[in-house]
Every structure is written in structure tokens, then in C-alpha cells.
Design a protein around this nucleic acid. Structure first.
Lengths: 187, 187
DNA sequence: ATGTGCATGTAACTGGTTACATGATTCG
DNA sequence: CGAATCATGTAACCAGTTACATGCACAT
């Protein structure tokens, strides 16, 4: 079960790769990004941290302080870095949700230049396919679809074409200039 | 807790309100819309149907045919219609996912004119809030955010502003008069 | 006969939520 | 003293997936 279902647990690992944090800190990060990636409850956050620790992907250090309650600070291990790298570079499924993609975007610093570009290309291909399908089915020719489906199809088409434009634009920018914060070892 | 967590089960009820169908038919509908609302497996679809039946929201009729395998056709009941109406008209949570909103769009035919407009307004308010927050945090002033967060924020902002524009446009079409809410930059 | 599409289902598991329970520290 | 914030955790439950299992009908 090393690199399976990809979700909060892996994303948390990615956050810990950027800097060591306590569970409470992680929660705060999620809160600020909740609209983009969702907001796990403590009831799943803490167990996720425990699981990462049990797998040896992170280590815990108790931070005793006098002014505030003590807390457990989690840091990524070498094994964790390896697992993270494996996760973020595996191809995004065609069923991947927007949230899953945004998680990868947020962890962009963990990618190599070419790795990030590959991810964006894959996403682009999938969105392009969907956009084309939506455009065909929402076109003026299709009369059998009811009002609701028409609304939904149009909505989806609008979002998909915007995403496509964003991806094209971003890929262009990335292709022209190297990453501003390149420096992940070993990728 | 009759009207709880709102998901596939309720959406299926909405599909059955449009026309009686078998589980397999429902699956096919999902398949065509999978990018927009997801695609439940049979392992959750059939139990959902059973649950709706047990709650008296749908009835089953076995359709015996000679040329093809027999199937179970589900039809919505009066109780089901009541439950559906209650569900679709309850306010969308600020944490509501895009998929949950698209489900409502697809079921647009089940809304009253004013009911649908109310839903769109609620969504608009939430997206506007998020869009503003994203715009502020992704602005050129914020220097502390890393490359990945900046990418994600920009991505979110692009999608949110498109959705806002779509909502405004759709509301205008549905309800021919200017919106009482304030305008948002960049349409 | 065998494979493909149609059609229905169950059991084990997973990832998540809700609700609960605890305790330190600071502020009014 | 009580409330709010910081901080961590567990147990019960729930929605959904995966994998499995069955069977009809039709075409090759």
C-alpha cells in the first residue's frame, strides 16, 4: 500500500516537505486553502499524521514551550521525500478531480522543471478532451437535452475552456523561463 | 436526519424524478456526465437504490422482456418528490464542491423559477467571496507566498472569475433585470 | 464454446466526518 | 472564574471503491 489512493495523506507529506509543522499548523494551512483543496477534520488529520509516522515517512519531535501548550512537530524523512517524489510524478488519472490537481500545483516546488511541465501537459490533454466533448454536446444542434443538462454542459464548457487557456498560458511562461525557486535535490 | 449528507443518493433521486430508470440506466447517465459530477461504482449505486426504496422514496417494477435480460425499473413516489424538493432547495453550504453545484444545475427542471434563481445567487455570493480573497492573496503585493501557492492561487482565481461571469450571465438570462449585487472586476 | 453487453448484487475495505474527550495557556 | 485559542486525540459512523459473484441473451 505504499503509493496508493493519493489524497490528504500525501498532500500533508508534501506540506511537511516544505517545512516541519505540527498537526495544528497543517490544519491552518488547509483552512487558508480550503476552497481550493478542501479542509480535512482533525479526526482524519491526526490519524493521517500517525500513519505517516508509522510508515517512517515523517518523524516527530515534541516541542516543549513555557508560554504555550507543547506540540508535536513533524518533519519529513528521506524515505518520505522518496515517497513524495514518487507520488507527485505519477500520472494524473483522467478521473482526477480539480482538487487533486490543485494539490499538485501547490506542491510545485517539489517538482523538477520538466516534471512540472509534464504534469501540466497531462492535465491539458485531459481537459482538452473534456472541453471538446462538452462543446459538441452543448452545441446548438443538440435538441434532445433538457434545460438542466444544457445549463450544466454550458457551465462545464466555460470552466474547461478557461482552464485550458490558463494551462496554455502557464506552460508558455514555464517554457520560457526557469523556475524561480528551483533547488529540490536529486530530481 | 432525513435530509442529511446530500450526495449521489439524492442526485439519483433527482434523475428518477425526470424519468423512471433501471440502475444500469442510471449508471449510463453518470458515465456521460462523469467529468462533471463523478461516476459512482455499481457497488454504491445499487445499495443507494435499495436505500431509496427502503425509505419509500422510490418504487420498483420488474420489467420482464424476452429479447433482453429483465431489469428493475425505479420510479419516484410522492414522498420521494417531497424529499427531493426539500433537498434541492436547501441552501448550498459554503464548502459545497463544484460537483454538488453541477448536480443541482442538472436537476434545474425540478426547481421553481425563483428557487433556481435563489440557488444561483447563493452560489454567486460564495464564489464572489472566494474570488475576492484569492485576488487579494495572489496580488503582486504578497511576497511571502511560494511559487506553488502562487500558481494555485492564480489558477483558482481564473476559474472563480469565469464562474462568476457565467453565473452573472445565466442569472441575467433567467431573470431579465440587473443584479442587486455589486460587480466584480474582469468580465 | 466463448466473448461481449446487459443486468444485478454482496463483502471487505478505505478515507473521511461527527461527536466526543482532554488539557494547557491567556485574556477579560 | 469563565471563555477563547492552542493543541491532541479516539470511537462510531458513513459514503464510496474494489473485487468478487451471478446470470441472461446475442453474435461470432
Amino acid at each position: 500500500m505504499s503509493a496508493r489512493s493519493i489524497s490528504f495523506r500525501h498532500f500533508i507529506l508534501g506540506l511537511l516537505a516544505q517545512q516541519p509543522m505540527s498537526g495544528y499548523d497543517v490544519k491552518r494551512v488547509f483552512e487558508r486553502l480550503s476552497w481550493l483543496v478542501g479542509n480535512p477534520s482533525f479526526g482524519s488529520l491526526y490519524p493521517a499524521l500517525h500513519a505517516l509516522r508509522d510508515e517512517g515517512l515523517v518523524t516527530v519531535k515534541v516541542d516543549e514551550r513555557e508560554d504555550k501548550p507543547s506540540r508535536k512537530v513533524y518533519s519529513i524523512t528521506d524515505a518520505g521525500k522518496t515517497a513524495l517524489e514518487e507520488w507527485i510524478n505519477q500520472p494524473i488519472g483522467s478521473d482526477a478531480s480539480t482538487k487533486a490537481f490543485v494539490m499538485r500545483l501547490i506542491l510545485a516546488d517539489n517538482y523538477s522543471h520538466s516534471g512540472l511541465i509534464t504534469q501540466l501537459h497531462q492535465r491539458r490533454a485531459q481537459v482538452a478532451t473534456q472541453c471538446a466533448a462538452l462543446e459538441e454536446r452543448a452545441g446548438p444542434r443538440e435538441r434532445e437535452v433538457d434545460f438542466g443538462k444544457r445549463l450544466a454542459l454550458d457551465y462545464g464548457r466555460a470552466l474547461a475552456s478557461t482552464e485550458l487557456a490558463w494551462l496554455d498560458n502557464t506552460l508558455k511562461r514555464l517554457f520560457q523561463q526557469p523556475l524561480p525557486t528551483e533547488g529540490v535535490p536529486g530530481v
